[in-house]
Every structure is written in C-alpha cells, then in structure tokens.
C-alpha cells in the first residue's frame, strides 16, 4: 500500500500521543512498516502539539510534509485549523469542536476566532466536526477524548477494526481499558 499519513493535533495535555500510539500499534499488528513522531518537553505545557503517524510497505521519514496528510485528527478547533495546509486535496478532517482558549484569549488580549468552524469546512472536502469532549465526559473521563476521536476516525483508516481493537488492548493501561473502550465505541457510533 502507498504510505498513509496522519496528523494528530491538539493542546499539550489533551492526550494526543495515545491516539497516535494506538494507530501505530494497529499498523504494526497489520504487518506494515510504521513511523510515528511526537513532541515532548516545553510544548506539552499547554502549547500547540502535533503527532504524526505514517504507515505503509516501507516508510523512511517519520514526519508528514505539507500537502501529504490523508487524515487530520484535531483535538481542538484552532489546533485543527493550524495544520490544514498539511492535508492532501482529498484529505479528511475529524475534529473536536470544543475550543480551548490561548493564553492571549484568557487574558482578553485577543479573541478566539468565531468563524473557526467555517474556516475548517472551507479548506477540506470531508469534515467531521463534533463535541468529542462531551462524549468523553459521558464515557466517564474527559481524558478519553483521544479514544473518542480514534473511534470516529476508524472508517477513514485503511486498517481492520480488529487490529485497532487489539492495539487498544495492547496500549491502554488495564486500569482504564474499559472506560477507554467505551469512549472508542461512542466515537465510532458518531463516525458512522
């Protein structure tokens, strides 16, 4: 298969890394070559974070270039908009509509863009916006947003559902597995 490129963006602390970890594991279980790139350190303190996953027959670079992404999974609207130019012409966007203000917004020095949803819609052919945070809270913990979004993204991933489900079992700590499986199911129902 041709290399499939995924970008996962959000705000430091939202749990972006787990989504990419599960996808990478699912690709490995599917017998594919996979590379995953992530950011640690200072950006994790509430900054803009980006994780990248690429899988296929043979993958060289671990990072996705502009115009190469098949799928963009956004944990927050502004952080989704920030990486839209990485999408292919037929790239898909799945994102959580619940905004998190920047520090500038919080001190009323700047305004969160009111038209952010329209901006995203205008830049991609297939866009799936929904309140993933609400689904995560309903599943039992706001931190399961990563599995909600993964569930919603499932039908756009060229991976078997069984591989993704096994990857979740291999990756998510036992203590919180059930709640994460619930969140994944809620996301998948949203994506259907």
């Amino acid at each position: 298969m041709k290399t499939f490129n995924i970008l996962i963006s959000g705000v430091g602390g939202q749990g972006v890394l787990l989504t990419s970890k599960v996808i990478a594991e699912a690709a490995l279980l599917s017998g594919l070559d996979v590379k995953q790139s992530e950011v640690h350190g200072m950006a994790q303190r509430g900054g803009s974070v980006l994780s990248q996953v690429r899988f296929g027959e043979k993958v060289f670079s671990p990072i996705v270039s502009e115009g190469e992404a098949n799928l963009l999974i956004g944990f927050e609207p502004l952080e989704t908009a920030r990486y839209l130019h990485f999408l292919k012409d037929d790239g898909v966007v799945i994102y959580n509509t619940r905004p998190i203000g920047t520090i500038g917004v919080s001190i009323a020095a700047e305004k969160y863009p009111a038209d952010i949803n329209e901006t995203i819609k205008a830049r991609a052919k297939t866009v799936m916006p929904f309140d993933g945070t609400q689904l995560a809270v309903t599943a039992g913990d706001k931190r399961t947003l990563n599995l909600v979004l993964l569930g919603a993204a499932l039908k756009f991933l060229p991976l078997k559902e069984s591989a993704v489900l096994d990857a979740i079992k291999n990756t998510v700590p036992k203590k919180v597995l059930e709640i994460n499986q619930r969140a994944f199911a809620a996301g998948r129902a949203q994506g259907k």
């Binding site: 994790q44 115009g67 920030r82 839209l84 130019h85 920047t102 520090i103 863009p113 901006t119």
Partner: peptide, 15 residues
C-alpha cells in the same frame, strides 16, 4: 504549497 490558514492565534506554552 497550500498556504497555511492566515492570521491564526499562536498558542505558546503556558503554566
């Protein structure tokens, strides 16, 4: 090139 969305607020790290 696909131009990035212009005028987006930056999100620096914070406490």
């Amino acid at each position: 090139v696909n131009e990035p969305v212009s005028g987006l607020l930056v999100r620096p790290p914070t406490f």
